[in-house]
Design a protein around this nucleic acid. Structure first.
Length: 550
DNA sequence: CCCAGCACGC
DNA sequence: GACGTACGTGCTGGGT
């Protein structure tokens, strides 16, 4: 079996199977490789020389799974060449599910029979078709230079995990419980009755019927009065119960989503939290994280920060965080070629202040905090294809003012306005939009003739090239950083832990942290030459909150 | 089991 | 007249 130049592999449970195209399949249980007998060692030697040989190409559907299994027994797969799951994703990134059976059914309109040799032949069959399709759609570069090299990096990140201070979490759980029951009884007292605060239905009855509060409150999709935080805030002057409810919600969220589940999720063998990073989970090219989601760990509120503090470095290590400053807006400036926005970034200005200065026609030093806040809302709105109503809601200004503000913005930043229009036009004409590296998103609804679906598709057309290019850049940076780690450092001295869309988190030997941090920063800032500079904030500390700039 | 409503991140 | 700011994951409640 050592002579194979290319083979497909598939793994279910611990049973591993591989086979060349048109050749018969071999399979065995991975647990047979972990003993110490001479037969086992021999088999293991043959196995690892095949898996670790970079010139033997591996084909598979979801290669991250077998790579993780191999890493667990000390075998580091090399020569990862074609993952049909990722190919399927690049060709059509809006599917919910990329299971082999579903992808196969979708492609060939045939059910995939579940036996193992059928899976292997299905992988080969898909590979042939996807290879041609990716060539035809110019997706080969994204596939080969961005997605495939990332697979084993994600496998390592998942396996390595991140350290958590359990004792701290247990304490935090207790204090949060106490606080919650206090809030609970106060809320019942104000309401004059016990009810389920977690039920929006019961809550709205208490607020709008029993306590008879009123105001300009948004309706939910189902037609009921909304109890979302933004709506309740409008009522906070009317009754002291509102603030208590908002606080209760915050604590309940933190407790049930983060504080209580996390201790259970710690792997007793590694004493660390291991997420799953999904490479085919978003339509824009971003990664997603689940079980648990480590990309939405709280950061804003005090209790959120308290929770985040429980993410800690191993002994003799430091956490090093690097995040891009205003990456999406910089990408928007680059793609649109907008003169004023590009110039502002080139001069190193605070972009929101500059935006305010342009719109209100004042000097930057005359921009007030509220002017800056509105300009910031506008800049964010731009990235999301926001309209007048959306901006009105985000900024809190009147409708006329919102309209005028947006008009001014589009006049001043006319490159941005042209970009937005050109993406709408392209999506209508070509049926898709793309990132600067050619990652695509199809938007068939833009031609549907149904106004709501068309506007929604237009917003997606405006956002995807920016968000998707950001995802591409982060992935490229991760790949280049991993190369640095493997060439310049001892195994285990520098470990990539997480990617949170515009941020990378590492765990680095404390005596190396500063130097390695600057090297990584340098890679990130120079990962790709745009018309604007990219800047990265570098911070370092023993937990994920108390970090000092380097 | 699924959906609605809500809330956390970027 | 209301609506409609991109991309995710995950919780609880409430109905099937």
């Amino acid at each position: 079996m050592g002579g194979l130049k290319e083979f497909a592999l598939d793994i279910q449970d611990d049973y591993f199977i591989f086979g060349g195209e048109n050749k018969e399949c071999f399979g065995f249980d991975l647990n047979n490789l972990t003993g110490t007998g001479s037969e086992v060692l021999k088999l293991r030697q043959t196995f690892s020389s095949l898996i670790e040989n970079p010139s033997t190409a591996k084909v598979g559907h979801d290669l991250k799974l077998p790579i993780k299994k191999f890493l667990k027994i000390g075998v580091s797969a090399k020569g990862l060449f074609f993952d049909t799951k990722i190919a399927a994703y690049l060709l059509k990134p809006d599917r919910k599910d990329y299971d082999l059976g579903l992808v196969y059914l979708n492609q060939f309109n045939e059910d995939l029979r579940p036996d193992r040799s059928n899976r292997i032949s299905a992988i080969w069959r898909l590979k042939k078709v996807f290879e041609e399709k990716m060539k035809a759609e110019s997706l080969v570069e994204v596939f080969e230079t961005i997605e495939m090299p990332l697979v084993s990096i994600l496998a390592e990140m998942e396996l390595f995990g991140i350290r958590i201070d359990v004792k701290m979490l247990k304490k935090l759980s207790q204090s949060t419980n106490k606080e919650l029951s206090k809030l609970e009884s106060k809320i019942y007292r104000y309401a004059g009755t016990k009810f389920n605060i977690n039920s929006p239905q019961q809550l709205k009855e208490i607020i709008f019927e029993k306590l008879k509060m009123s105001g300009k409150i948004r309706k939910t999709a189902g037609g009921a009065l909304s109890t979302a935080a933004g709506e309740l805030e409008k009522l906070s002057e009317q009754h002291p119960i509102i603030d208590l409810i908002l606080k209760y919600r915050e604590l309940q969220k933190l407790k049930t989503t983060y504080i209580d589940p996390f201790p259970e999720l710690i792997d007793p063998k590694t004493e660390r939290i291991h997420t799953t990073l999904n490479q085919t989970g978003t339509v824009t090219g971003r990664l997603s994280s689940q079980d648990p989601n480590l990309q939405n760990i709280p950061v804003k509120t005090e209790l959120g920060q308290e929770f985040r503090r429980s993410f800690i470095a191993s002994p003799k290590y430091k956490l090093v965080s690097l995040d891009y400053s205003q990456l999406e807006l910089r990408i928007a400036a680059h793609i649109s070629g907008d003169k004023k926005m590009t110039a502002a970034f080139k001069r190193g200005e605070d972009i929101h202040t500059r935006t305010a200065a342009e719109i209100f026609e004042v000097d930057p030093d005359k921009v007030t905090p509220s002017m800056r806040r509105e300009a910031k809302a506008m800049n964010f709105g731009l990235l999301y294809g926001m309209g007048i109503t959306g901006f009105q809601r985000a900024s809190g200004v009147s409708k006329d003012r919102a309209r005028e503000f947006i008009d001014r913005y589009m006049t001043e930043f006319d490159g941005v306005a042209q970009y937005m229009e050109s993406m709408r036009t392209k999506a209508r004409k070509d049926g898709y939009v793309e990132t600067i590296f050619g990652r695509k998103r199809y938007l068939p609804e833009i031609r549907s003739g149904i106004p709501q679906l068309m506007s929604q598709a237009e917003r997606m057309a405006i956002n995807m090239p920016v968000q998707g290019t950001e995802a591409d850049l982060l992935k490229l940076a991760m790949i280049k950083i991993e190369k640095l780690i493997n060439s310049d450092y001892q195994p285990g001295d520098v470990k990539m832990l997480l990617q949170i869309h515009d941020e990378l988190l590492f765990e680095i030997k404390d005596n190396l942290a500063e130097k390695a941090g600057f090297k990584i920063k340098n890679i990130m800032e120079n990962i790709y030459k745009l018309n604007v500079p990219l800047t990265v904030d570098l911070k370092c500390g023993y937990n994920w909150v108390d970090m000092a700039p380097l």
